[in-house]
Design a protein around this nucleic acid. Structure first.
Lengths: 189, 189
DNA sequence: TTCGTACATGTACTTTTGTACATTAAGTTT
DNA sequence: AAACTTAATGTACAAAAGTACATGTACGAA
């Protein structure tokens, strides 16, 4: 009944660490940050339990590192949007198409939601949760001012939640109409 | 060292059940649904551990009942808004004031966020998480049509997240400008 | 008053999870 | 090739959490 000892793999600490982090990130996306345990990570990454404790001093640190990783991934997604932001007033279709694609990428959506919920629960992760919204707001603010930029950013947070709860996200047409309206909305004096 | 046996309280199953549910709801608001354990609930409600298992067949059922309770509370909050919805076009200040107050009520905000995150993780709770948004959308749709109503509802979801992550929520002025813009936005053909 | 039922309570058991660590082997140095 | 360093692995232990249940007692029924 005892399993034959697994073939020992090559020594490669950095790759091993990456594998563990990737597995943890996957689990966070699929089942939420709360469901992340050493054993679940080990099974997903196909590494022994001991490895998951060797590279991180505690499960909290591991969770945090995985969330950090997801935040970085989202940063890259945002980088793609950046070039279209400049044209939001003249050609909003481009940025809307990009955002629409983001909302269809359920992996990205769930990652963003996991970050948000982690941020509302744990003050230490708040900054991480705010990052993408703040960055997007800054980018938009250069073009249309801070008030309108904030409105769009907040709306997109809502759209992300919407996508996480519905089978189909908001359509590009609806998204475009809303963003257009917010990008040109009259400012309060 | 053994504690003196606690004075046995009056028999009142319904009140006991309510106390447990209320304690669970508090904990969900304060620390998130994941941190809810039998022992934490028992301590908060000041009832023995055994009581928390007596009224609910499992911890999942207890959590779900507590979330249901929170959803009902939010329903009542929403009921207060209802009367102002009719005037959104003529006098949006009233409903904005009401919504602004909601965003300042961190208890309500955290409750709504807890429901949302529970809904994205557990499909069985999705309907619960969607309830307030759907109801608000329906109410608004009668006045301004479904597209604009959805846009406002999605925006307010974002505003709730915003409030949960920031020390001070969006201001009433900013909120008013945005809602006004969305309530009158040009519709796509 | 006595009896019986249903709730209240404390405790013990089981499962899950986090963490420590002894042992083994890969790759490096000498 | 021998010794050494360090990662890989399996396992064991401890803490936390879920659950079951024996016991006792309040309250209503007879």
């Amino acid at each position: 009944m005892s399993s034959t000892p697994a073939a020992r793999r090559r020594r490669d600490p950095e790759a091993r660490r990456r594998e563990i982090l990737a597995a943890a990130a996957e689990l966070i996306i699929e089942t939420g940050a709360a469901a992340v345990t050493h054993r679940a990570i080990a099974a997903r990454a196909e590494v022994p339990l001991g490895s998951t404790t060797q590279y991180f001093s505690s499960i909290d640190e591991l969770r945090e590192a995985a969330l950090q990783q997801l935040a970085t991934e989202i940063d890259h997604e945002l980088e793609k949007v950046k070039s279209y932001v400049a044209d939001i007033e003249t050609a909003p279709e481009r940025i809307v198409a990009e955002l629409s694609e983001f909302l269809c990428d359920s992996r990205a959506v769930q990652a963003e939601i996991a970050l948000t919920t982690a941020g509302t629960t744990d003050p230490r992760l708040r900054e991480l949760a705010l990052r993408w919204g703040d960055r997007l707001t800054d980018m938009l603010a250069e073009q249309i001012g801070r008030t309108r930029a904030t409105a769009i950013s907040v709306y997109l947070d809502g759209a992300t939640i919407h996508a996480g709860l519905h089978d189909t996200p908001l359509g590009a047409v609806e998204l475009a109409a809303t963003i257009r309206a917010l990008a040109t909305m009259p400012l309060p004096e």
